[in-house]
């Protein structure tokens, strides 16, 4: 076949144009698919655990949920606030909801210590950054940590927009007064956070904080099941989530 310069250029231009069209089509299809997998996951999966925190009922100064959580999961108590490990804690309104979408919030709400914990986001940034797969999203929506695989790089801590993760700067064992033997402790150099009591869910129990709360502030349930208490509450009350502008889609909702 006679191949001159003109023919060669024509052919290669056609080839490049064709490749461009195909790759564009592929990437469009791929992103469409990815979107579907995060948003329409409800159809394929049957469980997404979530929580509603009714701050109207939460009593100032009551820390029963924090106490029971930290005992159940052997969370150490360090004297130095820099070493603090927390799974669930109370924080100022301004810290929990720093977004500017809430205007003219009542003084009462503003003064109230708000309960904070891992949001178990539907699109968790911590999972994306974890280099070892130690943090991962379970099929039931829980963002779980595999402490065995954590190398302590703390990428997840910088990725989490809610400060839900703590790092063990020191050996936690000596800082646990009495160890609950059913749950392991952690090692120095490992990150930890709330696990929505996945070990209790496996036995058919509610999370410890939900069970312990005397005022029924916390409601836990399956967000994908329309007949659950949590969906009823979400239907009947206006709720807010933390930093919605980030698109993490938290599974923890607040009634203020």
């Amino acid at each position: 076949m006679i191949q001159n310069r003109r023919k060669f250029l024509k052919k290669s231009a056609g080839l490049i144009a064709g490749a461009g069209v195909v790759s564009g089509f592929i990437s469009k299809y791929a992103t469409g698919f990815a979107k579907a997998s995060t948003e329409k996951a409800a159809s394929g999966k049957s469980i997404r655990w979530g929580m509603v925190i009714d701050m109207r009922k939460c009593i100032d100064g009551c820390v029963k949920c924090i106490e029971v959580c930290h005992v159940t999961h052997n969370v150490p108590e360090f004297d130095n606030p820099k070493d603090e490990i927390k799974w669930i804690w109370k924080s100022d309104y301004a810290k929990v909801f720093p977004s500017k979408d809430q205007q003219f919030v009542s003084e009462e709400t503003r003064q109230k210590p708000f309960l904070s914990l891992c949001n178990h986001c539907a699109d968790p940034p911590c999972v994306i950054v974890c280099p070892t797969g130690a943090t991962f999203k379970r099929k039931d929506g829980i963002v779980e940590m595999d402490f065995h695989r954590c190398i302590g790089c703390r990428f997840c801590m910088s990725a989490c927009p809610y400060g839900s993760r703590s790092f063990n700067w020191r050996d936690p064992r000596p800082a646990i007064e009495n160890i609950t033997p059913e749950y392991p402790t952690r090692e120095k150099g490992v990150v930890e956070k709330c696990n929505f009591c996945s070990e209790r869910l496996a036995k058919g129990q509610q999370p410890a904080c939900v069970e312990e709360c005397p005022e029924n502030v916390l409601t836990f349930g399956n967000l994908y099941d329309k007949n659950t208490e949590i969906r009823k509450i979400l239907k009947e009350n206006p709720t807010i989530t933390r930093k919605p502008e980030l698109g993490t889609n938290p599974s923890v909702f607040y009634i203020t």
Binding site: V63, K64, I66, V68, H70, E77, P113, E177
Partner: peptide
């Protein structure tokens, strides 16, 4: 253990 923890937490969160 719970009692001790309660004291610490109250001191920290109140």
């Amino acid at each position: 253990n719970k009692q001790n923890l309660l004291k610490n937490l109250l001191a920290r969160n109140k």
